[in-house]
């Protein structure tokens, strides 16, 4: 997590990069932990000192990477409130949502960051804990129904959030307004997973919601 590149560090840029790197790893991890794809497409790696599973299927890896690159455009403009990995059953009804809620960067930490690695070390520890919580989230949730799939949703403060100078990229991987039917769960039960401290350069909380009647026969 190397972030020092001179005296005039752009804290917002740093936080955006860290968040998007973490988000990409987390999406791979969620897909693995929730068993949406065959176990064999994942390979073991390490991130922030934690064993993780990364997808090695080229098309799926590219899909996740392209989605995160699009999200990064909006995060850099400070327009993202939440990123949601929503799991849908075979009828495309949402049954589970992993919600990453982020707060704007605190500019008053800027001077401290330049003179002290404390914030970055704390953040790395925090991200490690987030990944560990995703790893064990399986034990707190009901099994996902067979033939489930996923969607990525980005809650933004403005419709222009995905606009970027790289129009070629957006032509290759365009975004649209999400259908209301995938944006909320019926009878959700919320399970908080982890939050960063109030002093963190990246203030974020992660929780998971699942619909109560997802698969009542399995615990």
């Amino acid at each position: 997590m190397a972030v020092r590149d001179g005296p005039d560090i752009n804290l917002h840029q740093v936080a955006s990069d860290i968040f998007c790197e973490f988000l990409e790893v987390s999406i791979h991890q969620i897909l693995h932990v929730r068993g949406l794809y065959p176990e064999g497409i994942f390979e073991r790696k390490k991130k922030y000192g934690v064993p993780i599973s990364m997808c090695r299927h080229p098309e799926l890896s590219k899909y996740i990477s392209d989605a995160v690159n699009g999200i990064k455009c909006a995060v850099k403009k400070n327009e993202v409130q939440k990123v949601v990995v929503v799991i849908l059953d075979s009828e495309r009804t949402p049954v589970e949502r992993f919600v990453f809620e982020i707060a704007p960067v605190q500019q008053n930490l800027k001077e401290s960051l330049q003179s002290d690695d404390k914030y970055l070390l704390e953040l790395e520890q925090s991200l490690r804990a987030f990944l560990l919580r995703i790893n064990v989230s399986d034990s707190m949730l009901h099994k996902v129904p067979a033939d489930s799939t996923f969607n990525i949703l980005v809650h933004t403060k403005g419709g222009s959030a995905m606009e970027t100078d790289d129009t070629h990229f957006l032509q290759e991987f365009p975004w649209m307004a999400a259908d209301d039917s995938v944006c909320s769960l019926k009878d959700p039960k919320m399970i908080p997973l982890k939050a960063t401290g109030a002093e963190s350069i990246l203030r974020m909380q992660l929780y998971v919601e699942e619909t109560v009647n997802k698969s009542p026969d399995v615990t």
Partner: peptide, 23 residues
């Protein structure tokens, strides 16, 4: 302008059957 808009990729992720076939 500051109203919440929920965006999603136009493309869908690869289907499980296609990924299984690849494997």
């Amino acid at each position: 302008c500051k109203m919440e808009v929920v965006l999603t990729p136009c493309k869908l992720p690869p289907k499980v059957c296609d990924v299984t076939r690849w494997l």
